[in-house]
Amino acid sequence: MIRRIETHLTMAPTPASTRRAGRRHPLATTALLVVGLLATGGAYALATTTATAETTAASAELIDEGGKLFAANCASCHGMNAEGTAAGPTLIGAGALAVDFQVGTGRMPMAASGPQAELKPVQFTQAQIDAMAAWVADLAPGPAVPPDRYIAGDGDAAHGAELFRINCAMCHNVAGAGGALTEGKWAPGLAGVDPVHIYGAMVTGPQNMPVFSDLNLTPEDKNDIITYLLYVQENPSVGGWDLGSLGPVSEGLFIWIFGLGALVGVTIWLTAKSN
């Protein structure tokens, strides 16, 4: 592109006076802008392609880095070669997306054995997580981090809501408030969860969650579900404070404690004897 424009410019042999007039031409500024924009745009495109080339080139380095991080932080439970031990499952075939979900939400490394890994502050930078993910992905093929178009949250919210009610709500509650599972396990609330982690959970089935493969829910379906969850997060309840979206339990507690409590207070006030 740049070369073509340059040739176009050099291929205009005009006298100096006309050239000067050309520099003063009313459209000169615009032309210059166009040239500038095209030049920077082209340079950017070139630079980014080089960058991509670099990542693939530096991939081995990244995998190496990930391997070191894995050995230092994960291997005590998952084994030096991610073959798994009594304390943790094998990660061969777990894929980059599983690593991104488990480490990216702070669930891994686990603080303690328990019914299930708990959310906690994330222990690594995204670059470190990517390195570990690359290392695990290098062991064997597994689910990869999805392209942006599947986690954009720009799908059909109504379809997503319907899919959510049918596939997810029995554990996560219709409004994504979470719910109880057996033996002290639970389905976490979904407010504020990053779209890539929602996608990752559906694909990799972490903890007690089932896997929703692409045959079960297509990537577009998953994007619709993400769209619905984002809608619920971004649009607070129109009826006022939602009391945790827990349904009739919190409503019942509220009316007994605050509704009836307030009115009993009023009855005491109304029948109080003046001193």
Partner: peptide
């Protein structure tokens, strides 16, 4: 005015197959 009760829009139309977690009757 200040507290949502029974946000029916969250629940969707009745369909015999799904049941939401936290499904309870009124108190």
């Amino acid at each position: 005015s200040f507290f949502t009760i029974n946000p029916i829009w969250n629940y969707g139309p009745y369909d015999p197959s799904p049941v939401s977690a936290g499904t309870q009757p009124d108190w």
